[in-house]
């Protein structure tokens, strides 16, 4: 029953995302706007760009994941599909929350991971650091979705969530940003990135265990 609900929701979310093709491309377009604008701002010097590349790519990925957050639960709140998650008290809403966050990650996180090599090339990131960059994005972007989902759920009952949303997300993603860019920088300088990636994985585990609980509780309060 739970699995059936989760797959049904995932299929529908992905179908809706495909139908809004343009909106789903937004994170990617945003990522590349940043990647293109920054060299125009700071100059094309390869050394400078290579040294700021990890931070640039990660900050862009982070801001890109913020874009879709406002729409993560709100349309479902407005058309009445969100409250159906609680009807009858049979489907564990936590599982549905996880499903929704997973589809958010598939739509906003995965394209960023896939196009990261291109962004890395454009910013002259040393090619040795590329696997670490990809790995850090693979571990880190789900955390962004989980944390963003939590902020989105908390602000759901308010009228203007977007400013509030970014204030809530920013403190929560500080550790992710530090460990992820630390990993890529270490790899670019020829050191081992294991410690950073290990800490990043620990953050992911923590976020996977705790964020859905808090998100579900916040959604529940907000539909009441």
């Amino acid at each position: 029953m739970t699995v059936a609900r989760m797959t049904a929701l995932l299929r529908r979310d992905l179908r809706l995302a495909l139908r809004h093709g343009g909106e789903s491309l937004m994170p990617l377009i945003f990522l590349f706007s940043v990647i293109i604008l920054v060299p125009l701002g700071v100059g094309p010097g390869p050394n400078l760009l290579a040294s700021i590349a990890p931070g640039m790519i990660w900050v862009a990925a982070l801001l890109a994941s913020l874009l879709a957050l406002e729409q993560l639960f709100r349309p479902d709140l407005e058309d009445g599909t969100l409250e159906q998650w609680w009807v009858g008290g049979t489907a564990p809403p936590g599982a549905l929350v996880v499903t929704r966050l997973f589809s958010h990650w598939l739509v906003t996180g995965v394209p960023v991971i896939l196009f990261a090599p291109l962004a890395a090339q454009m910013l002259y990131l040393p090619s040795d650091a590329l696997p670490t960059l990809m790995l850090s994005l693979l571990i880190g972007t789900p955390v962004l979705s989980l944390v963003g989902g939590l902020a989105s759920a908390l602000t759901l009952g308010t009228n203007r969530g977007s400013v509030l949303l970014s204030i809530l997300v920013f403190p929560m993603v500080v550790p992710v940003l530090i460990f992820a860019t630390g990993a890529v920088t270490a790899a670019a300088e020829g050191f081992s990135a294991r410690a950073h990636l290990g800490l990043l994985t620990a953050l992911l585990i923590l976020a996977v265990t705790l964020a859905p609980l808090a998100t579900t509780a916040a959604l529940r309060l907000n539909i009441e």
Binding site: P171, V174, P175, I178, F179, G182, L199, L203, L206
Partner: peptide, 12 residues
């Protein structure tokens, strides 16, 4: 939960 993480990561 977040504050100790922030503190630790910023120290790092």
């Amino acid at each position: 939960v977040n504050i100790p993480l922030i503190h630790f990561s910023v120290e790092w």
